[in-house]
Structure formats: C-alpha cells, structure tokens
Design a protein around this nucleic acid. Structure first.
Lengths: 232, 232
DNA sequence: GTTGCTACTGTACGATCGATCAATTACTCT
DNA sequence: AGAGTAATTGATCGATCGTACAGTAGCAAC
C-alpha cells in the first residue's frame, strides 16, 4: 500500500461538454475513415469513452451526425465570412476574399470532401440531416446574397435579383469545389478563382441579362430560336 | 408422376450476359438503398441469383461497383451527347440542347444523385473507382470541349482556351446538379438552364477575359487591386 | 462520512457484412 | 446416352454493426 490515493477510472463531464467532445471525435473519424468512420465503436474509441456513452447523450447515431454536420458547416461558414466581410475592403474585394477563402487548402482538404459526402448521402434518408442541410445551406446563400447586395449598393453592379444570383454563384463555387476535391490534378484552385472573378465582373457589366431586374424575358433560351450570338 | 419433364433450378448464362445482369441489379440497389444497397446479398437477391455468384464473376465488390460506375456514366453521357450533337442545330443551339438534357427529370432524379454519391465516396479509397472516375470525367469534359470548339469555329465566339472553359462550364453544371438534387425546392431547373445560357452568351461576348487566348494576364484578381468595376 | 443523482461502463444480443469453397447441376460435345 | 466443363449454389466463417440495459462509480450536497 504505497499510496491510498484514489485514481478515478473515468471523468464525469457536463452533458454539454461531453457532447462537444463526441462531436469532435465524430469529425475526426469521418475525416479519417469516411463512411466506415460512422461507427459508434470507432467514435467512442476516438473520444476515449465507452461504447454506450453515445446513446446516453444522443438519441441515436444520426442525431450525433446531424449535430456534427451543423457544427462543422457553421464553423466553416463563419471562418470564410470573417475573411470576406472585412469592412476595410470594397464590396467587390470582399467577394474576392470570399473566393480565395473558399479555395484555401483548409477547405479543399480531400478528407473534408469525404465528410461532406457522408452528410449529403444522409440527406435523402434522415429528416434530421435534411433539416440541418436546409438550414446551413440557407445561411450560406444569405452570406452570398449579402455580399452581392453590398456590390449593388456600392454602385459597382447594376440592380439584379440577389437570390438567383447567389444560387448561381454558390453552384459555381460548389461545382469547382467538387471537381477540385475529386480530381486535384486536372486544374488548379487559382483557375477556379479566376473564373469566379470573371463571373462577378461579367455580372457587374450586366452580362447576365436574365438576372437583371430591368425586365423579365418571357421565355428562356430555346433551341428553336436563332439567338446564336444574341446579347441575351 | 404426372410429368417427367425436368425443371431447371437455375439458368446458365454467358459470363458477359451475367455480368451485365449483375451490373443492372447493382444499379437498381444503389438507386433504392444508396450506400446500404452496396451489399452482395441485396444485389444477388435483386439479380435473382445466389450470394456466391458475384465473386465468381467479379474479383470483389469494388470491381462490380467500378463496372457499374463506368456503365452508368457512359450511358448517361451518350444519352446527353446524342441530344446535343444534332447537326441540324447550330453550335450555339447544340449547347442549349446539352443544357436542357443535363437538367431533364431523368438526370435530376434524386435517386441517381445518391448513386453518384456512392461512387464519389469510393474515389478516395479505391484505385479502380478512381480510374473510372478519371476516365469518364475526361470524356465528359471532351464532349463539352468539342461543343465549345464548334462554337468558336462557327464564329459565334472569339477564340478562347477550350479546356479551362469546359472545366468551368462543367463545374457550373455540376454545382447546379448537386444543389437541385439536394434541395429541389430552392430553385427550378429552368433557372439553372437560364444561367448556363447567360454564361455561354457572356463567353461569346468575351465576358471572361481570362479564358480568352488574346493575352495572358500576369496576375489573378487580388484584393489589393482596386479593380472594383474593372473590365477584366 | 453518508447519501443520492446520474454520467458512465461494458457485456450481450441479433443482424448483417464480404469472402470462401466444396458440392451441385445445367448444358455442350462426342 | 454418357462424360466433361464450368456456371451456380448455399452453408459457413470471422468480423463488425447499432442498440439495450443492468451494474459501476464519480462527485456534489448535507
């Protein structure tokens, strides 16, 4: 009996603290193993707790994934937004900052892409995940809408429909992000950024007539029309 | 003994025929169950054969998935290409056909999106899948490059770098496709098509200076430059 | 020191997974 | 008709999965 000191076998934590630790462990597992990482055994091992603790703090596995989705999405969005919404820059340059932040190595991490694939694949089957996706994607669009709105207010761009424009720009960004994550050798982030810059410049010059608020064309582009080199 | 007729318990098929049947069954399972559908038991049940037959015709499960990926990707690409490359239309209208084919209900099927997510999630871990992705994505880009090249040859657009333009356009298309598949209620396919049309029109008018072949700008858009409403 | 609350542990259970392989059998060839 | 070939079967293996739950133990209150 060299010591009577009692060594605790485990540590009791506040539910909020433990939940956050479990979310962190979940993210690590998702990055490392992708779909195979979504396992209570792997996650609890990564968090250094027993298997049963997850179901003590979360209703089920998908609840844990949903909270991880929301945490990660809001964290990344906040990081990008902090870099973009710097009042020291003009609205146009804030968009440039947004682009460069969107294609930073930290965001283009292939592991991060696989995490997103897991979330996306659960959208169809889990109402919880679907709700988180809807919410976070809406916030993402709002940030873009805000930046584009500041562009119009500064007079750098003619008035256009903010929402469709934000949707289109986010589609362009997402598409580049997907392709860069899947095929990093085909092209470079700087090329993606360049196209995004040109896209905004074209928008500022009224290059997207259907997005302008001047008038609403009755019909979309059709193969039967002969608008071969039409101005829109 | 009412009948001496022998009723076969199963049917023997040519390896090529059986492989095709297994690929078809795999696609059905992937559409219906997503990731959960990637199971030799589910697939063999859908094909009406025993569990062991898959490993008789395919080296492993990922081999079967890879062949399914290639078959589906080439099938869809061929379908879209047939609608686009109609010589009765002008090069510009062929692109319009390509856009409308890309956002047809058959392609926007949410189940089809989940199938793609399964393929994409295996790109990182399986060399076979990665090879198929690289090959089919290259062919997809080639079709776009060809259509854009015809646009230049017809004089409808100034000379520009075909490859980066095709990459950018495919990113825009993919991004819309992802967003439409995940959030069908946020916007409509016709809006996506309209933006694509405007994008090509802007391209024809030289709205993407960095894609033109006239000269190569030394520097990309930077936050430090004051090109707020620059012409590119 | 004792009590009470509850965060926490870890075994157990039934289901499903990919892969293997010896046995079976449909079909062709002679 | 009989033999040979190989496509097909299905039991079986070890591993892993999510969830449940009865029991353990940290820690605060008194």
């Amino acid at each position: 009996m060299a010591s009577k000191r009692h060594v605790p076998k485990f540590h009791r934590a506040t539910p909020a603290v433990r939940r956050e630790a479990l979310v962190d462990a979940t993210l690590r597992c998702l990055k490392q193993f992708g779909h195979e990482g979504v396992s209570v055994r792997r996650i609890s091992a990564a968090a250094g707790v027993s298997i049963g603790l997850i179901n003590h703090h979360f209703p089920s596995k998908s609840g844990l994934i949903a909270e991880t989705y929301e945490t990660l999405a809001l964290s990344l969005l906040d990081s990008i937004r902090r870099q973009a919404e710097n009042k020291a820059f003009s609205p146009r340059d804030r968009l440039s900052n947004f682009f460069r932040a969107s294609f930073a190595p930290e965001i283009l991490d292939p592991q991060l892409f696989n995490v997103w694939l897991v979330f996306w694949s659960m959208v169809a089957h889990s109402a919880e995940i679907r709700a988180v996706h809807f919410s976070t994607y809406g916030k993402y669009r709002s940030v873009l809408e805000s930046l584009l709105g500041q562009l119009v207010e500064s007079g750098a761009a003619p008035p256009f429909k903010l929402r469709p424009a934000a949707i289109a720009l986010s589609a362009l960004l997402d598409g580049f992000w997907v392709e860069l994550s899947l095929s990093p050798t085909v092209f470079k982030p700087r090329e993606a950024i360049a196209v995004c810059e040109d896209w905004v410049n074209a928008l500022c010059q009224g290059g997207f007539p259907r997005l302008l608020m001047t008038h609403k064309p009755k019909r979309t582009e059709g193969a039967s029309s002969r608008r071969v080199r039409g101005h829109g």
